[in-house]
Computed example of a mutant assay.
Amino acid sequence: MKHYTIAVVHGDGIGPEVCRAAVRVVEAALGTASPLVFREYDAGAQHYLETGESFPEASFEGCREADAILHGAGGLPGVVHPDGTEAGLDFTLRLRFELDLFANIRPIRLYDGVRSPLRDVKAGDIDYVILRENSEGLYAARGGGALLRGEVAIDPLVQTRHGVERIVRKAFELARQSEGAPRDGVRRVTCCDKANVLRSYAFFRSIFDRVAKDYPDIETEHALIDAMAMHLVMRPSHYNVIVTENMFGDILSDLAAATVGGMGMAPSAEVGAHNGFFQAAHGSAPDIAGKGIANPYGTVLSAASMLDWLGHGHSDERLTDAARRIRAAVETCIRDGLLSADIGGSAGTERITAALCEAVAGVSPGR
Results as ranks from 00 to 15, higher is better:
residue 105 I to Q: 01
residue 135 S to G: 04
residue 104 N to Y: 07
residue 135 S to W: 00
residue 316 D to N: 03
residue 291 K to S: 06
residue 252 L to K: 03
residue 214 D to W: 03
residue 254 D to G: 13
residue 146 A to M: 14
residue 320 T to I: 08
residue 132 R to V: 03
residue 153 A to K: 11
residue 276 G to N: 12
residue 18 V to F: 02
residue 345 G to S: 03
residue 257 A to Q: 02
residue 259 T to V: 14
residue 293 I to F: 00
residue 224 L to I: 11
residue 124 G to S: 11
residue 315 S to L: 11
residue 107 P to V: 09
residue 330 V to D: 05
residue 111 Y to S: 08
residue 204 F to I: 09
residue 352 I to N: 07
residue 242 I to A: 09
residue 257 A to K: 00
residue 352 I to P: 05
residue 223 A to L: 11
residue 208 F to M: 07
residue 333 C to L: 13
residue 169 R to N: 01
residue 288 I to H: 06
residue 38 F to A: 09
residue 23 V to G: 04
residue 101 L to E: 01
residue 347 A to F: 10
residue 29 A to T: 01
residue 42 D to P: 02
residue 114 V to Q: 04
residue 307 L to Q: 05
residue 50 E to I: 00
residue 318 R to V: 09
residue 89 L to W: 00
residue 216 P to G: 11
residue 74 G to I: 09
residue 228 M to P: 01
residue 190 T to G: 01
residue 17 E to Q: 03
residue 296 P to T: 07
residue 278 F to C: 06
residue 102 F to R: 06
residue 358 E to S: 14
residue 97 F to Q: 05
residue 322 A to G: 04
residue 69 I to Q: 04
residue 193 D to E: 11
residue 24 R to T: 12
residue 93 L to G: 03
residue 123 A to T: 10
residue 229 A to H: 06
residue 275 N to E: 08
residue 335 R to A: 13
residue 365 P to E: 12
residue 192 C to A: 13
residue 50 E to L: 06
residue 2 K to S: 08
residue 296 P to F: 08
residue 269 A to I: 07
residue 184 D to H: 04
residue 138 L to W: 01
residue 211 V to W: 06
residue 11 G to T: 05
residue 170 K to V: 09
residue 138 L to P: 00
residue 180 G to Q: 09
residue 88 G to Y: 10
residue 274 H to P: 07
residue 260 V to T: 15
residue 41 Y to H: 13
residue 69 I to D: 04
residue 146 A to F: 12
residue 96 R to D: 08
residue 116 S to H: 05
residue 161 R to L: 12
residue 304 A to S: 14
residue 74 G to W: 10
residue 240 N to T: 07
residue 45 A to V: 11
residue 101 L to F: 06
residue 295 N to D: 11
residue 220 T to V: 14
residue 161 R to F: 02
residue 44 G to V: 08
residue 8 V to D: 04
residue 214 D to E: 15
residue 289 A to G: 07
residue 111 Y to Q: 06
residue 246 N to F: 05
residue 97 F to A: 01
residue 129 V to I: 15
residue 273 A to P: 04
residue 341 A to Q: 14
residue 348 G to A: 13
residue 225 I to Y: 07
residue 149 R to W: 01
residue 56 P to M: 08
residue 186 V to T: 14
residue 142 R to L: 15
residue 115 R to M: 06
residue 185 G to Y: 10
residue 64 R to L: 12
residue 316 D to W: 03
residue 324 R to D: 10
residue 94 R to M: 02
residue 206 S to F: 11
residue 119 R to S: 14
residue 207 I to W: 02
residue 91 F to D: 00
residue 74 G to P: 00
residue 112 D to M: 03
residue 304 A to Y: 04
residue 202 A to F: 00
residue 275 N to L: 08
residue 271 V to S: 09
residue 220 T to N: 06
residue 173 E to T: 11
residue 7 A to Y: 00
residue 38 F to R: 07
residue 79 V to F: 04
residue 51 T to G: 08
residue 226 D to M: 12
residue 23 V to L: 07
residue 45 A to P: 10
residue 303 A to P: 05
residue 339 L to F: 13
residue 271 V to C: 13
residue 363 V to K: 15
residue 287 D to E: 15
residue 89 L to M: 09
residue 237 S to M: 09
residue 321 D to A: 15
residue 181 A to H: 00
